[in-house]
Simulated scan of single mutants.
Amino acid sequence: MARKNSGGFGETIRTVVYAVLIAVVIRTFAYEPFNIPSGSMKPTLLIGDYLFVSKFSYGYSRFSLPFSPNLFSGRILGGEPERGDVAVFKKPTDNQTDYIKRIIGLPGDTIQVVGGILQINGTPVTREEVGPYTDDDGRVYTRYIETLPNGVKHPILETSDHEFLDNTAPYLVPPRHYFAMGDNRDNSQDSRVMSDVGFVPAENLIGRAEFLFFSTDGTAGWLEPWKWFSAVRYDRLFQAVR
């Protein structure tokens, strides 16, 4: 009897170890979950969204591995991001903080913002006003649909066309780097702020945001289970990120 109990306990330990190893492999090479802590990607992504990022979309770098060990440089088995991808990357100025933004500029591009209008290689990007967007805190923005040169359409928010980052110098994107911007244009620390984010090295890319698997509006705390179901944004569950 004692031997049988011992075997059962050992089998349980092996099952747990296998489960952990499978989870680590999936997280490292396939999909990794992330949550959205800020409003810099509104209206595409909201605070309280939880999403899966495909690790294999751009290949693998040391930042694909847990704790980012410095085992190799560059990327292996890599695909290139496309303009308009919503990507997760390590913030270039500290190589530790996870950021999520939209890829706007590719290597060799010249990016500039003039009077709130994004310009790519000297050509203004088309944007179409949709109407007002009221945030949870009551702030009202203007919502536009922006069409990138490759045809990707996505929403952006503007407080006005006269904010701090609405007029910039031209940025020439270096080889093997990318220019990333938040969809909430006047409330995003992104590649326009060279001292804080700047150009994103290809090595810093973690993956492409694919779909939401959960979303909560933040009105329910962990110790308030009676509010959990009413706090879920059911209309956002299992939505693709575009």
Rank of each mutant, 00 (worst) to 15 (best):
K42H: 10
K42G: 01
P43S: 11
P43D: 13
L45T: 04
L46G: 04
L46N: 13
G48A: 12
L51S: 03
L51M: 15
F52G: 01
F52Q: 03
K55I: 03
F56K: 08
F56G: 00
F56L: 11
F56Q: 08
Y58K: 02
Y58H: 04
S61I: 03
R62D: 00
F63D: 00
S64W: 01
S64T: 07
F67H: 03
S68E: 07
S68A: 14
S68G: 03
P69N: 14
N70K: 12
N70G: 01
L71N: 01
F72P: 00
S73G: 12
S73N: 12
S73A: 13
R75W: 03
R75F: 03
I76P: 01
I76Q: 05
L77N: 09
L77S: 10
G78V: 01
G78H: 09
G78T: 07
P81W: 04
P81S: 13
E82V: 06
R83I: 05
V88F: 04
V88D: 02
K90S: 03
P92A: 15
P92N: 13
T93E: 10
T93F: 06
D94A: 08
Q96N: 09
Q96D: 10
T97I: 12
T97H: 08
R102S: 01
I104S: 04
G105N: 10
P107F: 03
G108K: 11
I111P: 01
V114K: 11
G116L: 07
Q119A: 08
Q119K: 09
N121E: 08
N121P: 05
N121I: 09
N121H: 04
N121C: 07
T123R: 14
P124Y: 12
V125R: 05
R127D: 14
E128P: 00
E128H: 06
E129H: 00
E129D: 02
